[in-house]
Simulated assay, not measured.
Amino acid sequence: MSIRFYLRKKFYQLLFTIILMGIIVAFSASLHTSKVGLFHSVLEQIKIFGHNFLHLNEMTIQVGISSTEAPLWGYLKQPYVYSFSILSTSFICIFTLGILFSYGTYLLSPQMRKVVKECLFLLQSIPDVMFIFAVQLFIIWLYKKTNILIVDPVAGFENIYVLPILVVSVLPGIMLFQMTFLAIEEESKKTYVEFAKAKGLSNGWILLRHILRNVVVTLFSNSHFLFWILISNLLVVELLFNIHGYFKLLYTVSNTPDVFFVCLIVLFLPFFFIEAVFNLVAIKVTGKEQSQ
């Protein structure tokens, strides 16, 4: 696949996704109308969305009990940067540690590999909400026993980073490890690996020099699955940790369709472009789009 064709394809995907999001939001906002006026109401909402796209700098949002109007972009900045910092840091941590942990596990004996995989499978079976509650309760219990507060378990009026990043990262990190290790095991069965072993090269060198290169390309091309898991985890974390982040903002503006639509697009665009860049890396290395 040529890069030009891929970029054209992603542009059409982006355009189609934005239009589809607008239709869904417009339809949701028009459900209160009668069946006769539903189609007309959806069209009016879409017209409002299109007008606001042409006048984004003029969009405002109602803030506080008194419903004071404030510029939308100025109000979005703080929660957006905060939530995106947690997501990006979590992604970098789980991607780096997932590859390193997979590398170390591959060098273990078959019996130890089985023990590691079974332990991680047990951790992954724990529901997200239960895991978050368990972490919070452990921190509170430790504080009561030792009078040492290692991290703040609830945000309050200040932004917290360490605990949300940890909680958001753990379960997706386990999933990434399993995905990486499975890809390594499949790659290690290929002919070129057997040939490298016949030449006397060590498992560590073969894994580092050859296998991981192909595995990382596969992970890059499937990164969108990881992004959506991180986003869903952060949605739960912001609620349970009382974090004033971007998803809490989305909930507060859900009754304002045009603002909600713009906020969804602002959330969607960075991950779309990051995933497109990762797929470009896969195309550059392998000559084809891995997700096909």
Rank of each mutant, 00 (worst) to 15 (best):
F177Y: 09
V135A: 15
I126C: 08
Y12H: 10
L122V: 10
I139Q: 03
P270I: 15
L269K: 07
H51I: 09
P257A: 15
G22N: 07
V253T: 08
F247Q: 09
F241L: 12
V262P: 01
Y6I: 07
L280M: 14
K189P: 01
S223M: 07
T17E: 02
L269I: 15
L239D: 06
F271I: 13
V170A: 03
K47H: 15
I148N: 10
L76K: 01
E289Q: 12
N255I: 15
Q111R: 13
D152L: 12
V81I: 12
T33Y: 06
S41Y: 08
L38H: 06
E194K: 11
V135K: 00
M130L: 15
S28W: 02
L234F: 12
C93T: 10
A196F: 06
L234P: 01
S102K: 00
D128A: 15
L54N: 13
I243F: 03
V63C: 11
E289I: 13
S223T: 07
E186T: 13
N159P: 04
L31R: 14
G245I: 01
S202L: 09
H55S: 12
Y12K: 06
L207Q: 01
L120W: 04
F247S: 08
F241W: 06
P270H: 14
L212V: 05
M179C: 08
L122R: 05
G104S: 04
Q178L: 10
F16C: 07
V168I: 14
R209K: 12
V115N: 06
E186R: 14
L250A: 12
F49D: 02
I211D: 02
K10N: 07
F53P: 00
G104I: 03
E185R: 14
S188D: 06
I18E: 01
L76A: 05
S221C: 13
L208T: 10
Q290E: 09
T252D: 12
I174A: 00
S223N: 08
E58G: 03
E194L: 13
L72G: 01
S66D: 12
T146N: 11
H224T: 10
S221V: 06
I18K: 00
F84T: 03
